[in-house]
């Protein structure tokens, strides 16, 4: 199974908790405590979510994380930590970012991860069923916490197939429900 979530945390306890709660949610994770490893893991594993836990991180690590998070386009980024620290991540592209301030809330993290993963999966299914190129990199759109709407250019791939008309949809439903 491929890695769905990459976790960066230099705090062993918090990193361990994050990995454990996601594991219990049947999510494949990779826990790392080195930013260089995170960079290479994101490009090699192509995860759906990267979780950056800033707790216990040094100043230069936070700067590296900030730089990394602003350059990530291919996956969703959750940034965790003290409100004052994660505030520095608020610059730039925010459409694929989620900020969760301390205290660490495993339930919120699980519920948001579940939601993001399920919508990414639905998106993939829609893209596939609409005969789009299935090898397209994961595109995350319309996650509830988007701070900015996607640009017009981004709207070519969407969670809903806009070409569906009612008759088409009704006919699909009949077929699925074996009512024909």
């Amino acid at each position: 199974m491929s890695v769905q979530v990459i976790i960066y945390s230099s705090d062993r306890i918090r990193g361990g908790i994050l990995r454990e709660i996601l594991r219990r949610n049947k999510t494949e994770t990779l826990l790392l405590d080195n930013i260089m490893d995170v960079k290479s893991a994101i490009s090699s594993h192509k995860p759906d979510i990267a979780i950056f836990d800033t707790s216990n991180s040094l100043k230069n690590e936070i700067n590296s994380l900030k730089h990394l998070s602003s350059s990530i386009e291919e996956c969703f980024v959750m940034i965790l930590g003290d409100a004052l620290i994660i505030n520095v991540f608020h610059d730039g592209n925010l459409w694929n970012k989620l900020f969760l301030t301390d205290p660490l809330d495993p339930e919120i993290i699980i519920s948001k991860s579940r939601e993001i993963l399920s919508r990414i999966q639905e998106n993939r299914a829609t893209v596939k069923s609409s005969d789009h190129d299935s090898t397209t990199a994961p595109v995350i759109r319309n996650i509830e916490n988007m701070e900015e709407k996607p640009s017009v250019a981004d709207e070519d791939i969407d969670l809903v197939d806009h070409n569906l008309d009612i008759e088409h949809l009704e006919s699909d439903l009949r077929q699925y429900l074996k009512l024909d």
């Binding site: 306890i13 918090r14 908790i17 003290d82 301390d102 205290p103 660490l104 809330d105 495993p106 339930e107 919120i108």
Partner: peptide, 8 residues
């Protein structure tokens, strides 16, 4: 402590 996670 700021280490304690939210425990429901």
């Amino acid at each position: 402590s700021n280490q304690i996670p939210m425990i429901s």
